[in-house]
Design a protein around this nucleic acid. Structure first.
Lengths: 212, 212
DNA sequence: CTGAAAACTTGCCAAATGGCAAGAATAAAT
DNA sequence: ATTTATTCTTGCCATTTGGCAAGTTTTCAG
């Protein structure tokens, strides 16, 4: 759909395969077809295999990715050496360690692909260049940061005031696909409970749903 | 100190009273005296009285503040109508509801001054203008966002993997001044426990410190 | 200085969550 | 298809945190 007029409107020509990222950009920050084309041209395709890392602890995050297909998670280790899931990614999201990427400093965590996945990425130098040249790209970039911050704050609030079961229920209703792709253990630490507890919570939740 | 050469170096003239904000900017993103001067000129002084609001729920955050003196907190209400402290601010920090400010949308929370306080602020339109004109100001602004995000992530991690006592201890060591200015109840919800529990935790903590 | 309000502590008990270990179910590898 | 590893569930009990209410201390306005 996005590409109907491409052949007669050269400056805005966008390959069909970039439809998903285009939609995402427009949804985040509306702009003209010409602007969109100039932004989206920077993004290059890349595939990750299951278990590949987008970034590893101690290394600088090299990719600012829009994930079109696949599932990923970010994690780190606690004092006791247990993995703690810090983020879960499903399709049509930005996948990136924003701290590491924007400050070009070593990452504190791993981002790993849980399935084979396809992304569109841009490097730091390219992004800097593009931001400098295109105010609307800057605005888009800032909104991604602000939205990430807002979402994290929501999650924080959820940790502060909701019970583990409520957090589970919310994730279940918001993003049920996650549960088909991500092992319980990883979801548990993301929600902030042990896998044992989550197993019980899930049981309770199922029971309550059955009643209603 | 910063102002030694001002009289013979007009473009970089910065009033002495802006020393604190200048230091903060330079620490966040190093730049030349000329650049610093052009950035800092945008910030205007403002005072808040004890209990004044920087922003209220449902209103758009109008100020991007650097707080030079005072203490503030951000809070919202949970389902049961209890206040939940979402942030605590001490001097030499940016105080702003970043979501509301940058998206120019209604705030979800209150930011209230707990003491009389003095800030340097800039409005959204001014900030947009300044960001547009000055790449180094943009970089500074982006770093503020990234750093806020990073700090929130750290706090999130702390919620996920540390006990309430550990979170108390960390705050105690990191920012002890807070405890002289902010009632226990507010700190409790910030840490993610009830005031009753925090009272006990503090007792335990004191006992343990005494031993060591 | 005094009285009211707010903040803080503490005892008692309930609820939520964790830790460990064993067993069941599922997925992955050969 | 069989084996092996991983994931998930569950029972038992310990630990952490919460809720309520009473009592104490501190703060603050008049």
């Amino acid at each position: 759909m996005l590409c109907n007029l491409q052949l007669i409107n050269f400056p805005a020509m966008i390959p069909e395969e970039k439809n998903a990222i285009c939609e995402f950009i427009l949804k985040t920050y509306p702009m003209s077809q010409e602007q969109l084309a100039s932004v989206v041209q920077y993004f290059k395709p890349k595939a990750f295999h299951k278990n590949d890392f987008v970034v590893e602890e101690g290394k600088i995050c090299q990719f600012y990715c829009f994930m079109e297909e696949g599932f990923m998670r970010a994690y780190t280790y606690d004092h006791a050496g247990n993995e703690v899931t810090t983020a879960l990614y499903s399709p049509n999201q930005i996948v990136c360690d924003l701290s590491s990427f924007f400050k070009q400093t070593p990452s504190q965590e791993y981002i790993q692909s849980l399935t084979n996945s396809r992304v569109w990425y841009i490097t730091f130098d390219e992004l800097q260049h593009a931001f400098h040249a295109m105010p609307y790209f800057r605005e888009f970039g800032r909104l991604i940061l602000v939205n990430s911050y807002t979402q994290l704050k929501q999650r924080m609030l959820s940790m502060l005031q909701e019970t583990a079961e409520a957090r589970y229920a919310k994730l279940m209703e918001t993003n049920p696909v996650i549960f088909q792709k991500v092992p319980l253990k990883m979801i548990a630490s993301y929600i902030g409970v042990t896998d044992t507890s989550l197993s019980r919570i899930r049981k309770e939740y199922a029971k309550n749903r059955a009643k209603a």
